[in-house]
Each structure stands twice: as structure tokens, then as C-alpha cells.
Design a protein around this nucleic acid. Sequence first.
DNA 1: CAGGGTATTGGGAGCGCTCCCAAAGAGGGT
DNA 2: ACCCTCTTTGGGAGCGCTCCCAATACCCTG
Lengths: 345, 345
Amino acid sequence: MAAARVRSGGRPTLEEVAARAGVGRGTASRVINGSPRVSDATREAVEAAVAELGYVPNRAARALAGNRTDAIALVVPEPETRFFAEPYFSAIVRGVGAALADTEMQLLLTLVGNDRERRRLAQYLTAHRVDGVLLVAVHADDPLPELLEQLGMPCVISGARHAAETLPSVDSDNFEGARAAVEHLVSRGRRQVATITGRLEVYGAQRRLDGYRAAVSAAGLAPDERLIAPADFTEEGGAAAMRDLLARRPDLDAVFVASDVMAAGARQVLREAERRIPEDVALVGFDDSVVARHMHPALTSVRQPIEEMGRRMAQLLLDEIAGRTPGDERPSVVLPTELVVRDSS
Amino acid sequence: MAAARVRSGGRPTLEEVAARAGVGRGTASRVINGSPRVSDATREAVEAAVAELGYVPNRAARALAGNRTDAIALVVPEPETRFFAEPYFSAIVRGVGAALADTEMQLLLTLVGNDRERRRLAQYLTAHRVDGVLLVAVHADDPLPELLEQLGMPCVISGARHAAETLPSVDSDNFEGARAAVEHLVSRGRRQVATITGRLEVYGAQRRLDGYRAAVSAAGLAPDERLIAPADFTEEGGAAAMRDLLARRPDLDAVFVASDVMAAGARQVLREAERRIPEDVALVGFDDSVVARHMHPALTSVRQPIEEMGRRMAQLLLDEIAGRTPGDERPSVVLPTELVVRDSS
DNA sequence: CAGGGTATTGGGAGCGCTCCCAAAGAGGGT
DNA sequence: ACCCTCTTTGGGAGCGCTCCCAATACCCTG
């Protein structure tokens, strides 16, 4: 029995645990990793040694020997203010954190600001420094997903990039959320329902517009392209779009806005135009952010289960990494939204 | 010259880079790590080989051999909603990310929810899985800082825990921010200035109260403890405190609230009590969050340079890890705040 | 021209773990 | 009792890097 080198300080090694338990290194490793091919007696002995020594595996050694990292990266495109804004970012992080809580997986946060950082990220991924990647707010033309697919790197994205998404993705039901919002407006007697959309290259924004259209025709209202104003998810964009709408269709009596922040911009314009909310114009937002609650009047909004989305993304990724993808098709999750009715509608 | 093993797939190793450059492994390593003890010709040869092969060092191997990890942890106590709320979290993350951008350092996100996760974190840190720790929103009685100090683990905290903080810390100037806010109220002719404080166990909240007191006496106003209502940084707490204040001193004409969220609660109560803002009561918040901008009327608030705080925390930590602490005393940074005047005052 | 630096360099010895092969032990059937 | 199979076990061989020592090359000095 090889006596483990005596080490005064430092953390205990597997070798020491094995020596203490009176078994070989291989056996100790098997116990630590939960292999079934160990007798009960041995397992208990090793577990006791682990507890006595306070052994914690050395992650680096594990990664080196096992060719894995036990870490996943959450990649956040920093300029994408829509994502980085409240409540998206912290909620996603919370959800991911929750899903990872009783896992050995570490969460690496990677902010991608400019092109240089983007290249560094690509290098990172190529160097296999993580077992998988969570990609949020990817654009349809982002080369990153392709790169990941080529590398065979497990990956989950938030929000499908288009109808024929090939990557595993988690999304909220943008179509249904928008549809329900507009249906709600119609049920309150509104007849000239306009919409301010997000950037339509973003698939989710397109789906919200689709939902709007579906609800409009389901209600038997006359579709009118002049009631549709595209914007860019910013407050200023929302304001500009609202001005356009008022100019084109001054008779509108409701607006479904594809984000709360844009709704804030729209409300400002409506106030300046002296349209009362909700008496003259009803307003519904999307996201149910802090802004919605504190707007005056409080904004009716479509809530997305963002934290849950984070959790599901992480779970999907863990599955992907473990290789237990059920069928051949890519798992894609669509979570329901909820309409939170407040004073603006 | 030992021929490097030919490997079809896979990433290139140091050994391969060395072979390609026609040098030894040690020399290649020296170049990669920027050692000055290499001739220019050799350096160039190695750099060329690195570029041609697209070599990226294997992090795990480095960590194992070098007994470091090139990673730091951002530890976030999840139940601490004050911190996790907008804008704190994302701004800190941004700042930290910016400071780390041209470093090899990785950012690990660790959410600490319950006691179990807390123990796991302690184990983590004991196992030296990171080179340093960024601790945000620590309570004065949190055992974590002590643990870190015992382990000799570099650490920076956001917000001193008390006047005699021993750890390197980054903070905004809570005292001066509060003082300036109250001074502003006084300069607008307010004479009965009340305050709603955060939880006073939080040192920052205490400092804000100190700043309030300083401004009150500097203005020659009569200090009155009935004008001071403690709360807990929540909207409901702010509302309750506002009710207390109105009951005790119905003649108050201004309130300095130690956070925007509490200010939102207070505003609600003032509206119910039919006090106009700012005509009857002027309101000033703290944080300059989204809530402040969208409140009605828009809330005057004290802005903290949170992103900059994140950046400085990271820099301090990197210094600490590099061991180049200038003197013996712990570096502690206090950043200035800025009063953003809006319609509520 | 010898002697004693100083600047470079190569490569051995690990770091602590996983993988895997071969050996030892434990039954079971005939 | 013997052979064969299945289970359990030990430990060698790396994973790719850093650290460091010894070797070599080069340069002054007297």
C-alpha cells in the first residue's frame, strides 16, 4: 500500500483520501464519482475518509484529466440594452442559478461588448473552456451559433431566431401574449387598436406583431397598416412611433406596445398630445417590468416568466451536455405569458 | 528535438507550438507568459507558431500546474433583493466585466440563496477554486469575510460594513449624497425635512442618515427625531414609514428617502393623503433607478456610479491578487454621488 | 587566453485527477 | 475439486502546463 506523501498544509488529495480509507486511488475516485461498481463497505469507508479530511476534488485536475470543465458560460451581448435592462438580466441569472444550484456546474459570465471581445469569446469556445453555452438575445445573423454547432459545443438560446430554429431554445409565447393583450383591448370596447413593434429582425418582435394581427382579424376589425408602427425597443423609439401613429390615425383608441420601455415613451407623447389614459387611449405593454408598475397610470402588461426561462435554459443545456437528448429533434420550450391588467387599459 | 505527438483533431498544445517554433517547451511557455528572459528572435518564432496553430493555452492544465485559477467569483446573496434589484446588479456586473475585459480572468457568478448554498460556497472557497472574491451586499454579521481572511483569499467588498472596515472596499459617498440631497431640499425653501431610512444595520443606510442629520443642523433647522422613520428598503416599508411620518409630523414639507423603491411607496401614501408633489411635499430618492425616471412626477434622486464601483472593485481585487498592495493599509475607495434633480423637488 | 560571470535554453518532475487494463476475489455449475 | 464468469479493486499512464535546475552559449575582464 503506497503511503501518501505527508503534506502539512494544503487541501487533501484523492490519494490521501484513498490512503485513509485503506483503498486504492481508483476506488476512491469511483466512490467520489458515484460509480455503481463499488461494494457498500468500501463506499462507506471512502465516504468516511472524505468527511474526516474535508476533501473537495480539485477542479482543475478533474478538468485536465477528464477533458471537461464542469462549467457553462452565459454569454451576454452587452450592447443589447434590451436584454441587459431590467428585469431580463437578473431574472435570467436567477433562473439559471437556481437550476445549477445542486449541480457541480459553475456559471461563467461572459459579456461581449465589441468585436475584439467577440473574437476572444470565439477563441474561448474553440479552446473548449466550457462544457456548454447559454446564449441570450442572439441576432438572427449572429455567427456564434454556427460556430458552436461546428464545434459540437452544446448550446441553448433564449428566443428562437426564426421560425425554423435549429438550436435548442427557450422562449415565451410571444404570439399568444400579444394576441391576448389585443383581445383584452378589444374586449374593453376598443376598435382602433394600433401597435408599436420592436425591431422586426428580432423574431420575438415579429411574433408579437403576428399575434396582434391575429387578434385584430379574429375580432373582425379592419386591419390597417397605418396602425402599425415599427420601433427599436427604446423609449425614444417608442415616442417617435407614437407620434407617427397619432399623425396617421388620430382616431386610434388603443395601443399595444411590444415593450414597457417603448410604452413609457409612447405614454409621454400621449400626455403631450393631451390624450387621457385610459379614457382616450388604452395602453398595454410587454415585459411587466418595474417601469410598468410605476408608470402613471400603472401599465397593463404581458408578463413573461423570465426566471423560469432561465431555469429551463439551464436544464436543457445540462441535458444536452449529458447527451441525453430524447429524440433527434431539438428540444424547444415555449412558456406561457400572463396578462397583468392595471390602470392603463 | 523531441517530435511532438501528431494529433489529428484537437487543439494544439504547448508542446506542438514549441516543436513548430523549433524551441523547447519551457521556452515556449516563457514566451506565452511574457517572460523577459527570451531572445527577440525566439520570441518571434514562438509567436508565429502560436498564430499559425491558433494555440490557446489549456486553462485547466495551467491552473493545475500553476496552482491558480485565473478566475474570480462574484458572490451575490440572492435573498438580498435590494442588491438584486435594478439597477444594482446589472450595473455592477457591467463594471466588473469591463475591468476584466482585457484580462485572462474569468468571472464566476455565485448566487447564495440559502444556508446550504452558503456552505457549498465556503467549501468552494476553501478548495481554492478562485483567485479572489468580490463580495457584494454583505451584512455586518456575515461570517464570510472572516473566512476569506483566514484563508488568505483576496477579497473586495462593496460597501464598508462599518466605520472600521478592515477589508478593501468600494463604496459610494452615502454621507455626502444624503447631505447634498437634503441641502437641495433646504435650498428650495423646505423647513420640515423628514427622512425615511434603510435598515440601519446596513452601514450605508446609517451613513445616509448621518448625512441627513449633518445637513439639517448645517441649515440651522431644529432636529426632530419624529422626522426620522426607519424602513427596510422595500416599497411597503417606505409606505409604512411615510404613514408614520404623516401621523407624527403632519406639517412636514419634504422627505428624503434612502432609496427610490421606498420613495415609490412613500409617494403612494402621499397621494392617498392628497399631498401634492412637489407643491405640498418635496420628495428625493436615492439610487436613480428606472423607477425614479418613470415615477410621476419624476423623482429627484441621488445617483451612485454603480458601474464605476464594479470596475473599481475588480481593479482592487486584481491588485490584491497580484500582491501589489501599495502600503499596509487596506485600499478603500469612496466614489462621489450626483444629485439628479427632477420634478419631485 | 583562462576565469567568471550573465543571458538563454531544454526538458525533467510534478500538479491531482480520470480512464482503463489487468489482477484478484467471489460464486456457480458440473 | 475445477473451470468459467462476474464483480471489485489497484495502480500505471497520461491530461497540458509551470517551475526550476542544469546545460550551453556568449561576453567581459585582467
